[in-house]
Amino acid sequence: MQIREAKIEDMHTIYMMGYDVWGGDLSVEDYIKECSQSIKYQKGTWFLLQDDVTGKILSSCVIYDLELKEMRAKGIGSIATRAEDRRKGNASELVRGVIKEIEHTENCSTFFLYSDIGTVFYEKLGFLRFPVQNYLQSTCMYLSKDRHVNMESIEPPPYF
């Protein structure tokens, strides 16, 4: 398996990974158009997990630079896996690999995400519930190796 930054030609496949969950009543064409024009999606850097043998893209996520005055941090969003490839560890491998790469190349050790699927999956990856929750539908979670950061003393980042 290989983790790499997504290319423009990967984006249709990446967007379609979330269609069954986030597409709602949109047609595939309208959903792809909405994703490709999303300012939010354009602000981040997309990463994917790809099978080395088949070339198949298995999972994807987007990484955002968070502007927090208390610390340097990244946001992880839109974690998705092809429906037929779910529950095989692909998203876990991608998230762990992306975090490891960012820790190494960007010297960043604090990550946030908003979970719409409950907390168990992310807790298995080491994420903790943020002490303050501002959204009813999503749970803010964090992972930090920075021992100088007191999450009790800061506001959660806005939903990204």
Rank of each mutant, 00 (worst) to 15 (best):
S60L: 04
V53G: 00
Y135G: 03
R72W: 10
G77A: 14
E67F: 13
Q50C: 06
K33V: 14
A83E: 15
L125D: 00
R129A: 13
G44P: 09
I79C: 07
D10G: 05
E103I: 14
F111M: 02
I79D: 00
V21W: 04
G126L: 07
T110F: 10
L66T: 09
E70F: 11
T110S: 11
V21H: 01
Y122M: 05
V120G: 05
V28K: 02
S60T: 01
Y122R: 03
S109Y: 13
Y15D: 13
T54S: 15
V132T: 11
K100E: 01
V28E: 08
F111V: 01
L128H: 03
K56E: 14
M71A: 09
F121D: 04
F47C: 05
G44H: 14
F121N: 03
D20N: 13
K33Q: 07
R96T: 14
L128A: 02
K88F: 09
Q42R: 14
V28F: 04
Q50L: 00
Q133E: 15
E103Y: 11
G89C: 12
S109C: 13
D25P: 15
A91T: 04
Y19N: 02
Y64T: 04
L94F: 06
I14V: 15
R96F: 10
V62M: 06
Y122G: 01
E70D: 13
K56Q: 11
D20C: 11
N90G: 05
C108M: 09
D20H: 14
I102H: 04
E34C: 12
Y114R: 09
L26Y: 08
Q37W: 06
E84L: 06
